[in-house]
């Protein structure tokens, strides 16, 4: 499994670096706007949107895009968006 992860990271280094950078910015922005619920939600929405676009882009450039894959990224993104929204903006 570790070998597969290493291969995946080596093959798509730029894509994963981009995702990790966005994740770090997400954490920094959340920390910066701590206590400001609307801004926290905007930061969350931006990260989820970025993730869906990242997923589509990643599969397009590797010629592996399928409607089911797009749906999977959209679903996972929106599930977490709604679940965290309940806490941020009750």
């Amino acid at each position: 499994m570790i070998n597969h992860i290493k291969k995946e990271l080596k093959k798509h280094t730029f894509d994963y670096l981009l995702l990790l950078t966005a994740g770090i910015f997400f954490i920094l922005a959340l920390n910066l706007f701590r206590g400001e619920r609307l801004l926290e939600f905007i930061v969350l929405l931006a990260f989820v949107s970025f993730y869906i676009i990242w997923g589509v882009y990643h599969h397009i450039i590797h010629d592996h895009l399928h409607f089911k894959i797009v749906l999977e990224y959209v679903m996972i993104g929106f599930i977490l968006l709604f679940l965290l929204k309940i806490i941020i903006l009750p």
């Binding site: 995946e8 990271l9 995702l19 089911k68 894959i69």
Partner: peptide, 8 residues
């Protein structure tokens, strides 16, 4: 034909 588990 699935999304990337590592990315998720």
């Amino acid at each position: 034909f699935t999304g990337k588990n590592l990315a998720h």
